[in-house]
Design a protein around this nucleic acid. Structure first.
Length: 420
RNA sequence: CGGGGCAUGGUGUAAUUGGCUAACAUACUCCGUUUGGGACGGAGUGAUUCUCGGUUCAAGUCCGAGUGCCCCGACCA
């Protein structure tokens, strides 16, 4: 994309009404726009990042057999009354709204009810199971206090997958597959080393649920990390009993704050029973379906990546999620520089590389400043200098030492550093 | 929901502490010169000082109420 066509602008100063690093930098760079507290719009650059994260998650969900769908945000209160979760006491973050006829509807905070309800109309036989369905869907939560930029908002995009199994064993096997899928996701988006499988409260149907917690001072959770096992325990369930069960020694645990970037949750028959989701077994008998839910807040994950990777002043994107792989800077506007930059731009695009081409008639300093703020993984410079050298100047962030490469060498390098 | 802080052009700030036409930087538009770390000169555009009410000869400034934003706490299916 030509940067001259990008309608968003960077700001010299960060916004004054923002405290979190993620919102401060993402807004200063024009990746997101704030509509209200905890309500952020995604602008072209920000949307590209979020889309990239979404696509990685999608690939991993498809790989474990997930089928993508898209349920509505508007929710019928009758459904939620079946599980006794329509009241504001049961779910205190409900947004509710009235239809013209006076009927109340809710804006979905989760789809633990509607998904199994929908499934009762489609899956009945043991032959129809197991099933795993997922969606990227907007959730609404009327938080008492939104905070931490895009990491705890009132409206946000969430990937939620629900598994439906016939037996506990079938459920357990799938649960393990999801655990691996989540590990791959967090590794692929560049925070694998900082993210830890964490034991957390399991609610009424199982002893534990499991969270993926990314170490960061911006986090709101406290976890106890066992570095030997790359395993952690959320403060909320920490006890001698639990430590013994997990074979952990309190003295070897390290307390740290972390961002919950994902969680997986065994639900048992908590929802399938009241909603009447059963399957008919080979003997013609109805059997309850065993459920699991598996969530990742896509926006929160983007926020977490920002918190982990960005410096105080500049964003920095892992190649796998960057809005563009290459930031191509044209310094000067002499004919040969313009022609050469255009050639590089076209050739990289032809090679399947996403390029943000700064073709503006701006000063070098301004281009560098914007480029640093954007934090794309590769910075490629074409100028009189590089023309004389006959090579491109390439910086691979976060390195600051440039390399001088032929165009063909650059393309080879880009191919090699493609993330798994 | 309890507590604290803040609210002035798109953005970041100032305004003698109640006093003249709300200033500066940046951004934006136009002209010209520039082009390796946010260039320079010139000319412009842009503000109901969050809202409503009050005090006063006079309010961005004081008072009251409300709203919004940020932070701490509680809460977090």
């Amino acid at each position: 994309m030509r940067q001259s066509n990008l309608f968003t602008k960077t700001n010299k100063k960060p916004p004054a009404d923002e405290d979190s690093k993620n919102a401060t930098l993402l807004r200063q760079a024009g990746f997101i726009h704030k509509e209200a507290a905890g309500v952020y719009s995604f602008l072209p650059l920000g949307k590209r990042v979020r889309d990239n994260i979404e696509e990685i998650i999608r690939e991993e969900m498809d790989a474990v057999g997930g089928q993508e769908l898209d349920l509505t945000a508007l929710q019928d209160q009758n459904l939620w009354q079946q599980t006794d979760r329509w009241s504001d006491e049961a779910i205190d973050v409900w947004f509710k709204t009235a239809l013209k006829n006076g009927t109340e509807m809710g804006l979905a905070t989760t789809h633990e009810e509607p998904i199994p309800n929908m499934l009762t109309h489609h899956a009945e036989s043991y032959r129809d199971f197991p099933v795993a369905v997922y969606q990227f869907q907007t959730k609404f939560r009327n938080e008492l206090r939104a905070k931490a930029g895009i990491m705890r908002g009132r409206e946000f995009l969430m990937k939620d997958l629900y598994s439906f199994s016939r037996t506990q064993k079938e459920h357990d096997d799938f649960y393990e597959k999801m655990k691996s899928a989540y590990k791959r996701i967090f590794a692929r988006v560049g925070i694998g080393a900082d993210t830890h499988y964490t034991y957390a409260d399991g609610g009424s149907f199982s002893e534990f649920s499991h969270e993926f917690q990314t170490e960061s001072e911006a986090g709101e959770d406290t976890i106890y990390l066992s570095t030997d096992d790359d395993l952690a325990v959320n403060e909320e369930v920490l006890s001698d009993d639990v430590l013994e069960k997990l074979n952990l020694d309190q003295d070897n645990l390290q307390e740290t704050t972390a961002i919950e970037v994902g969680n997986i949750f065994p639900l048992g028959t908590k929802f399938s029973k009241p909603l009447g989701l059963t399957y008919t077994d080979k003997d013609g008998q109805d059997q309850p379906v065993i459920m699991g839910s598996y969530g990742i807040g896509v926006g929160r994950l983007m926020g977490a990546i920002t918190e982990i990777k960005a410096s105080e002043d500049n964003l920095l994107w892992p190649e796998s999620v960057a809005p563009f792989e290459v930031h191509l800077l044209r310094l000067g506007d002499s004919e040969d520089v313009v022609a050469e930059t255009r050639t590089v731009y076209k050739t990289l695009q032809g090679a399947g590389v996403s390029v943000l081409y700064d073709d503006r008639n701006a000063s070098a300093g301004e281009k560098f400043a914007d480029s640093d703020l954007y934090g794309l993984p590769f910075q490629v410079i074409v100028s009189e200098k590089t023309e004389n050298k006959g090579k491109l100047e390439v910086t691979f962030r976060p390195n600051t030492e440039p390399a001088y490469l032929e165009l063909s060498e650059l393309i080879a390098k880009l191919a090699n550093t493609q993330h798994e």
